[in-house]
Design a protein around this nucleic acid. Structure first.
Length: 345
DNA sequence: TAGATTTGACCTAA
DNA sequence: TTAGGTCAAATCTA
């Protein structure tokens, strides 16, 4: 069950990475392509690797009866090894040194407050292209309800405030903020705060059975596990975020979404203990040291990137091929979005 | 008509 | 005092 779902998630991650690699390849051959875009693509490719490895290592740990999840809290094992393979992500993110939120985004002009008494915050950056990708990129798999919007000093675009739809039903305190960057309106900074404690299987107090629904049973009506929603898309968020954000964009900024389609996903990886208690943990920026705000990291020449990406893409092709052809995986079980996504070529 | 979104007012940390 | 974050009434939408 879980293994099957993990398998799908791994395939999804790898396939995503492959798509990013292919797109990067195109961008590298395009003189007008911005370095920023290329960096984000590389960043996303690394994310795919890291997420895949995390999923795999997490599965191994689970099947071995260990919930120590060392990869979730530091650069250890495979994650570390992975970074050493890719020079661009070598530089550790400064967030590693601080479990608390650290604002690394030069476009985020917000004050660095900790209003919730040390609740963990982390960020991801999402770049969108085209309306559909825009919706999907902002769909991180959770169901969010917008509760506010505010103009931020120094920021060109207002910041949207979202909280978990199941805050009332299940007391889930997870929130997120969505804000466009000043430099590139296609790039959104998503700031997450709090861990989702809600459960998709029920909107009531029924005890959760995380992490993921059985592949042999129909998905729960309330779709909350990020991986699944990332695979299937979240109707909820398509209806809410799309309306809210797209409307804002159209109203205030005459939004346009050219160029590339990139999104960075960091999967929350809830873990279940043997007694059924949920101990959600996240693959946070701390975990994936290179995951966030690559623009602030030491730069690597595009020549190096180009050389690396060829190998990355090749590897991804091999891995995805192997993964998709193995065990009980069927594409029908995993409606990957790529068939619907358009990549400028 | 219920639920979601908008938006001005209020709260509060810095 | 300022500005980010949240509340809640008004409004919108399916």
């Amino acid at each position: 069950m879980e293994a099957t779902m993990d398998h799908k998630r791994v395939v999804y991650e790898l396939t995503q990475g492959k798509e990013f690699a292919e797109e990067l390849k195109i961008h590298l051959n395009n003189p007008s392509s911005s370095q920023e875009t290329q960096e984000i693509l590389i960043h996303n490719i690394l994310n795919s690797y890291e997420n895949s490895l995390s999923l795999l290592t997490n599965h191994v740990l689970t099947t071995n009866g260990s919930n120590d999840e060392p990869h979730l809290h530091g650069k250890k094992g495979i994650i570390r090894k992975m970074e050493s393979q890719v020079p661009f992500s070598e530089s550790p993110c400064s967030e590693d040194s601080d479990p608390e939120f650290k604002d690394l985004d030069p476009n985020d002009f917000g004050a660095k407050r900790k209003r919730n008494g040390g609740i963990e915050k982390w960020k991801k950056q999402v770049k969108v292209r085209g309306e559909m990708e825009f919706e999907e990129a902002l769909d991180d798999g959770y169901n969010w309800k917008k509760y506010g919007q505010k103009d931020i000093l120094g920021a060109k675009h207002p910041r949207g405030y979202y909280r978990c739809t199941y805050r009332q039903l299940q007391g889930c305190l997870a929130t997120k903020q969505v804000q466009r960057t000043n430099e590139d309106p296609n790039i959104f900074n998503m700031t997450y705060q709090g861990i989702h404690t809600c459960h998709p299987a029920t909107a009531t107090d029924t005890p959760p059975t995380l992490p993921l629904p059985s592949s042999s049973s129909p998905p729960p009506k309330i779709q909350h596990p990020p991986p699944q929603n990332q695979l299937l898309g979240s109707p909820k968020i398509l209806q809410t975020d799309r309306k809210a954000i797209t409307k804002n964009l159209e109203t205030h900024y005459s939004a346009h979404f050219p160029s590339t389609s990139n999104n960075n996903f960091v999967f929350p990886t809830p873990n279940s203990t043997s007694d059924g208690n949920e101990t959600p943990s996240f693959i946070t920026p701390t975990t994936l040291g290179s995951t966030y705000f690559m623009m602030s990291q030491p730069q690597v020449s595009m020549c190096e990137i180009n050389e690396n990406i060829v190998g990355v893409e090749s590897e991804l092709n091999d891995i995805v091929s192997a993964a998709t052809s193995s065990t009980s995986f069927h594409n029908a079980d995993l409606p990957l979005p790529f068939g619907e996504l358009e990549f400028d070529r």
